[in-house]
Design a protein around this nucleic acid. Structure first.
Lengths: 242, 242
DNA sequence: GCTGAGCATTGATATATGTCAAAATACGCC
DNA sequence: GGCGTATTTTGACATATATCAATGCTCAGC
């Protein structure tokens, strides 16, 4: 659990052939530019559940594009309290918190067997000076993270427990759908405890909210297997503050 | 209240002579580079309390450096709930949420008479392709915003009411001190309601927490005039989760 | 197929914060 | 400088969520 990444492998796959390309890289690059970007992402690493991708305090070198699997990020308080700040899945890019001070300010931990592309940030900066569309893409990714965080602030600051869980489920569903998976049937990779930490709730409250949604016919819950039965009503839960 | 900026003035002051330069611009520019940056920030605008700098939904053109005064940013929920996401002061840069979609995703409202420099974002991108230190600075500013947001998520997700208020006061104090103002005596520009929205609390809870801090001898409160009397104990409130 | 160690669920109760209401105070405007 | 409105404070009470505790489920490992 406290060990760093165990199986380090340097794979030969490239962005140009990566099926996630449209998720993490700009789409309008010429093939010559694409080849240059390939040189950026040659370093790939594998992680198993519980491995740290980076820890708070680690020096910053790279952003990481998640190629497969998923991670959680968490910030730690001095007194030991921790808060999950996000669950990241395939195609998402993490590590941007560290640009500010050249030191990571949160932990990133694999939720399952996962693989990432390390994107050395100084190379990313150099290259984005020459490729405006890469530059623009990088800015958009960082901005998207800011917008995402604002959404979570809204959730934590002004929603009740069941609204928070509904928002969480809908967000998850939508991101899975964007990756070609079912929007209505999925497996959660995280515990009630982790969901609670992310949503600012205790695990029992999360569990009760799941049970209540099930009783109301909104979803079917079998521990970590979720099926959304009534998407419109789940969405309505968010829009009306009843 | 619903009117846009009223007094639009084009001032002739430049970054090179701006006393906030070290807050919003990189420090290691040559005088030639500095002249180029001057061309970027010629447009300045004045706002009075209640003016919108931008609104959610507005098209994105510029980031804004706050030259004097202060602003609040807030996000709106479909059902009308709103949440203050930050109070920005002199030297801080806002509007980065809009880069992602070219549309602003929150409102920015002047808290007092204020002046901003508009930084047209396409020019900022062009110029940062040629000036690595400007590029790096821009990235750091965006990353800093991400880190700030994570801190608020921690606050909203895992702190109790009085811890939140202590964190708010200490953050305010520190930012004022960084600008050469007193760290222990200051005027709040925002209502209890706005503080509550920012901290995920009701205004009555904020008011009670203020009163309680005063009874405990931590601070002296006279409505919006605050004096911090016992900084160490206020800080201790945050570190121990008692 | 059994066993044990986490997880998850559920119930009873406690508590922090929200809600509603009234009084006090501050502040802008004429 | 006084009036009216908005803001703040304070109190009594309501309630959502936390806490504590017990039971049940699941799944990995033998």
């Amino acid at each position: 659990m406290l060990q760093p990444a165990i199986n380090i492998t340097e794979l030969r796959s490239h962005c140009s052939s990566c099926n996630l390309r449209e998720l993490c890289m700009p789409v309008d690059l010429s093939s010559i530019d694409m080849q240059r970007i390939n040189t950026l992402t040659q370093l790939k690493r594998g992680y198993v559940r519980g491995d740290y991708l980076y820890r708070s305090g680690d020096p910053f070198h790279s952003l990481y594009a998640i190629r497969s699997g998923s991670f959680k990020t968490q910030v730690l308080h001095e007194d030991g309290r921790e808060q999950v700040t996000g669950f990241q899945m395939t195609g998402e890019i993490i590590g941007m918190d560290a640009i500010s001070t050249d030191v990571h300010t949160c932990d990133a931990i694999a939720m399952e067997n996962s693989e990432v592309c390390a994107l050395p940030f100084d190379q990313l900066e150099t290259m984005s000076r020459e490729l405006p569309s890469l530059q623009r893409h990088l800015h958009k990714i960082m901005s998207r993270e800011i917008v995402r965080d604002q959404g979570i602030m809204l959730l934590l600051g002004s929603m009740r427990a069941e609204e928070r869980l509904a928002a969480f489920l809908l967000n998850f569903s939508q991101r899975l759908a964007a990756r070609g998976f079912s929007a209505t049937q999925f497996q959660l990779r995280m515990s009630r405890q982790e969901i609670g930490s992310y949503l600012g709730l205790k695990l029992e409250t999360v569990s009760r909210a799941f049970s209540h949604f099930q009783e109301a016919g909104l979803i079917s819950v079998k521990v970590r297997s979720i099926e959304i039965l009534d998407l419109p009503r789940l969405q309505a839960l968010l829009k009306s503050s009843t």
